[in-house]
Design a protein around this nucleic acid. Structure first.
Lengths: 220, 220, 220, 220
DNA sequence: AATGAATGAGCATTCATTCAT
DNA sequence: CATGAATGAATGCTCATTCAT
């Protein structure tokens, strides 16, 4: 039925097809990981074929998460390369771009939230290390771009981004399961949770960045 | 075999026993939720009995999470009530206490991480709302204590705490799965992730609080 | 809460309450036996109390089935006592009455169908014998009335009724699960099953009685 | 371990193996449906494999029931094709054959009795319809053979068979649970039920057929 | 007698993964 | 390489019944 993927470029292409299928299903799904059978079917492949390209189902989603995170770092880098003006202006411009992007990719944060406690469970530790290495390597790169743009000292760029993402993830998880509910019925008792995520994240990041940059500056 | 819990105080006691059993198993476990059978056995009860006190297994752990969060809020409140000195001194004292506490309760963060994607899955939405309401109510209370201590205006105390917890959760998830590995094999390439969680959290929170308090002050 | 049933008349009354509750639930239910908890609740009693009056849940429904069958025999007897005219006229009159009655009591046949394969499974054999004895005793009685009315020889009345009920039960089970479906969608391919139960039963019984009476007559 | 059933003939064979295993267990069992695990084990397959061929456990037994019914219809058809002599002679010959066959296949009636209230419970309605359609289609076919043999008008053959089977089922259920007991302890008080099933069924069917054929004849 | 808390046996089904073809 | 048939581990929950109060 399906052409064999002989050349390694074909292999990579097939991997992409599987990832795309998994992504589509996850995005439109209910939050749980789609089954291997569903992924295969969506990709137009047999169940066994999927396991020729990934060792476990979780590996697929780890790859998907990595892809999402690298894209996010790309965006960040791009935002800083185009930024101009004072340091604070650059930071402000970045935050706006960043929050918008994150807000448009809820599935990234949904997947990220599953990483701890679902993905981990059935994942080769080596693969996990590989994942982290790839992420951190890219993060370091982007960190340098940030350092240049904001005139920070070495390593501080990556740290800043890391904490920025931590705050993002943490807030998203606080607000997440909530969103659905407030959509239908506004419950005044839950007020502290009820601001929407976009606004909340913006405010929190502005606070954090102000503090972080103030310290870095004064530290100089 | 087992005394019937007839008085409502007896019932509450039995509930506690179940929660304690679940907590013990989770803390010493591998990160997944213990089975209902294990919990019952650990509690010295029959499986069916557990379901007289909780509707689903997940409900047990939601209650456990709530308990942990409320205790954390207690600690926070206590820390602020005993704090003295300038605003910054109080904040610094609090952060020290807070980080120490959090560092001593990794299971709280482990459980919290499961909430999204594992607990949610098999949980009565009403129970979830109840959980959030209880948490937010208590959070608001503690928020007021914080406001008094730091002379913040209304609502800012709860927000501050919420974001503090978000940053905590987010960072913990970044560092978590990592800890085990660095314990055994130190891998220099993962440097940005390798600072230990305690130090990282402290630094990040200092940055965030500086920014948050600076804004609040200047806003006045 | 509830008065103790001291006198044995009270006991019988309570038994009736339980039976009535079980009957109500079964009639309005989906075809499966209501749970012991439901019955107790419907009867306004505690679960344990029900087991003071019946040894197993199935025993309740066996009693209910017996009640229904005895009532049916009552009706039959009554029909024959009031019948007049030729033997065939009496038979015809009886069949009309009988079919109408049966058609009005679908729960009796529903319960009867459960007897084999559900009730039996968890029933004290002694109780089962008791049930049959009570039924057969009463059947013999009614059989005699039938014999008088139709001038049959000894034992033939009961046999006639037994087979009449067997045909009823057998046809009902053929048509039963079917009824619901034909209600919504008439499927021409199922034609042989599609006549309604009332008509089918009437025709079949007329055939059977004609044969049975012809034989009895010629046998004389 | 097990050869993969790839060709569709292999698949059909495996289906048969499962059905045979289920049949064996049911026949030698206590009247309840064997567990899925038992069936798989008896068939020499893994539990999961069974579910590749049937969607639910109940579906297996529905298929088994259908098989039994179709075989019965085969027998009937065969009996009539070989019959000769007057109409009554043919009928009498048929009844003898029929009763003998039925008496040899008690598990068919046992399974049939479960259909209402056990099988139905966990069965896709579509499957149920499919089952009925298959049965009725075959019934109509056999009905035509009967009509030719007995010179009945259209549709009466199927009806006759339907009612014959209804009477069979109904009587069997009356006598069934009884058999075991009378085997061990003969209880004279239950006399009306104590004739054995074979004799009772024969008599009842003779009566019914006499009536049915008399009517059909006179109707002409 | 009445209560309702405690018990624990019982089981179909899914689905990630392997491996025969 | 691709396929899809085979595998079998893994488990929450119900509910009839008992028995402490």
């Amino acid at each position: 039925m399906v052409r064999h993927a002989i050349a390694s470029e074909d292999k990579r292409a097939r991997r992409k097809i599987i990832l795309a299928a998994a992504g589509t299903l996850f995005t439109s799904g209910d939050g749980s990981l789609p089954s291997a059978a569903q992924i295969a079917s969506e990709a137009g492949l047999a169940k066994g074929t999927v396991y020729l390209y990934f060792q476990t189902k979780e590996e697929i989603f780890l790859a998907l998460l990595l892809e999402g995170l690298l894209t996010l770092l790309n965006e960040i880098e791009f935002a800083f390369q185009n930024a101009s003006g004072t340091r604070d202006a650059k930071a402000a411009a970045f935050l706006t771009t960043y929050v918008s992007y994150v807000d448009r990719c809820p599935e990234l944060l949904r997947l990220d939230a599953l990483c701890h406690g679902v993905l981990e469970k059935n994942l080769d530790p080596a693969k996990l290390r590989e994942f982290r290495l790839a992420f951190v390597t890219r993060l370091a790169q982007t960190g340098i771009v940030v350092e240049h743009a904001l005139r920070l000292s070495g390593g501080h760029g990556a740290t800043l981004l890391m904490r920025t993402f931590a705050l993002t993830r943490g807030l998203w998880q606080s607000f997440q399961s909530h969103e659905e509910q407030t959509a239908s019925k506004t419950d005044p008792t839950l007020a502290p949770l009820c601001t929407n995520f976009h606004k909340e994240l913006t405010e929190a990041l502005i606070e954090y960045w102000r503090g972080a940059l103030a310290i870095r500056r004064s530290a100089k």
